[in-house]
Design a protein around this nucleic acid. Structure first.
Length: 430
RNA sequence: GGAGAGAUGGCUGAGAUGGUCGAAGGCGCUCGCCUGGAAAGCGAGUAGACGGGCUUAAACCUGUCUCGAGGGUUCGAAUCCCUCUCUCUCCGCCA
């Protein structure tokens, strides 16, 4: 059998359907497990039948070869096999159809949340794990970042709309410099202090990658698809970077692999109409530095904590107040088994907004993308665990800096850690 | 874009006229012998997926499929035919 890439272990689903069903309910996902189980049974029955016939064909074919070599006439066997071959062709086709149906169901089943994920019914139920820093106190009325950006002439929303459309923004002067400085600051931090290797991937990927990390087939409408090709603009560096090792078997001593990548990210934001229409919070194109890990299964949860801490370092270094929440079962992403969100303080919203999302996908993506490792020299390959997290979203960081570091005179102070990347600029003035 | 060549196991590399080819040889790797220890040498073993049997499980036994991908011819295809993808060389064009 080829091409059947279960997102969940088929044998696991088969033997413990209640566990899967319960997990799906917790998530609020509706998937027909019964249909899956019926199809899977069908598949096995037909597979057995066709394999038996193929065995017969192989044996008889050898016999034919033997007879021919001995100068005898195998015509009777040949004509018998003609029917068998025809039957095999039919059954093969049936198996293929069943597998296709099975695959469609399988691709639509979300990951099973880890036992430690809080059960909840909406984002309201996400517990706050820790808070860092104090929201700044202003003795004036703080302005939202889009006003600050425009008055300092470093963000141009109007022209962004003119040259592209809604949800596109032009950065100018020190605004553009700030964006670039943040990218460099984050990459340097992760490569020099946290031990990640830097990757610079393509910004477009093929369909297989999108299936591998779980964006497809379910969320195609959220993606930008390039007309006349089958390329997709990457919605996050997670896609190209995780797929780096698609269909590969890694060596045990390579693990864990820690990669960081800057990419622009492109999202159609279908279904977000009317939300966050102002400012940098929700754009069709934004920059992000991503962290991606490939680990042994037994290490992945410890690595998730460290990855989250690595992302937090970015905000600590910039002096931006934030908190960490654990996403509940209703709020975690399709592919994720467990997710922490980092939320940065935004004065104009008078609340914390997501700036990073750190997830352990366990073997969900590894199964889809077929990424394995060999635990020992002669051992059978196992699926790795994949993790990733924003480290962090650059546009939202710019928004957070403008708002949290704004001054009464309308200027914005540049966080200390960023100044070397800003050519020594300490403050953006009007 | 034009012309040509190619795609085989971890790597390399054989595979006239279709018939024990899942695939020789070499390298690498693993285990054993040898050694004070190592190297060299010798011996053995080294793909994956999906089923079935046995089992608590693994090991093991067994079947099917996979020689870039998909389709076709045939009783039977790595070998013949078609389509696609990718790689390499030369030319052209560009950042």
């Amino acid at each position: 059998m080829r091409g059947l890439r279960p997102m969940l272990d088929i044998k696991f689903v088969r033997s413990k359907p209640e566990v899967v069903r319960e997990a799906l309910v917790k998530r609020g996902a509706k998937v027909s497990l019964d249909e899956f189980l019926t199809l899977e049974e069908q598949r096995r029955v037909r597979l057995m039948e066709v394999e038996q016939l193929k065995n017969l064909r192989n044996v008889v074919s050898e016999e034919i070869a033997r007879l021919k070599k001995a100068g005898q006439n195998p015509e009777e066997l040949v004509s018998n096999m003609r029917h068998t071959s025809l039957r095999i062709k039919q059954l093969d086709e049936q198996v293929r159809e069943v597998e296709e149906n099975l695959q469609q169901i399988l691709l639509g089943i979300p990951n099973i949340p880890h036992a430690s994920v809080p059960v909840g019914s909406s984002e309201e139920d996400n517990p706050v794990l820790r808070t860092w820093g104090e929201p700044p106190q202003f003795d004036f009325t703080p302005r939202p970042h889009w006003e600050i950006g425009e008055s300092l002439d470093i963000l141009d929303f109007t022209r962004g709309v003119k040259i592209a459309g809604a949800r596109f923004t032009v950065y100018k002067g020190l605004g553009a410099r700030l964006e670039r400085a943040l990218i460099n600051y984050m990459l340097d931090l992760h490569t020099e202090k946290h031990g990640y290797q830097e990757i610079f991937p393509p910004f477009m990927v093929n369909r297989q990658c999108m299936v591998g990390t779980g964006q497809l087939p379910k969320f195609e409408e959220d993606m930008f698809h390039v007309d006349k090709t089958d390329y997709f603009l990457v919605p996050t560096a997670e896609v190209p970077v995780t797929n780096l090792f698609r269909d590969e078997i890694l060596e045990d001593n390579q693990l864990p692999i820690k990669l960081t990548a800057y990419t622009a990210c492109f999202r159609a934001e279908a279904g977000a109409a009317g939300r966050d229409t102002r400012g940098l919070i929700r754009q069709h194109q934004f920059n992000k530095v991503e962290l991606v890990k490939f680990t042994r299964p037994e290490d992945s949860y410890a690595e998730l904590e460290r990855l989250t801490a690595d992302a937090e370092e970015v905000l600590k270094g910039l002096g931006l107040p934030y908190r960490v929440v654990a996403l509940c079962t209703a709020d975690i992403g399709f592919s994720s088994a467990k997710t922490y969100d980092l939320e940065v303080w935004l004065p104009s919203f008078n609340t914390y907004r997501e700036i990073s999302s750190c997830s352990n996908f366990e073997d969900f993506q590894a199964r889809r993308a077929n990424i394995r490792y060999r635990p020992g020299p002669k051992a059978k390959p196992r699926f790795v665990h994949t993790l990733n997290g924003s480290g962090v979203a650059v546009g939202r960081t710019v928004a957070a800096i403008l708002e949290n570091y704004q001054q009464a005179d309308g200027s914005v102070v540049i966080p200390e850690a960023l100044r070397p990347y800003m050519g020594g600029v300490e403050r953006i003035k009007g």
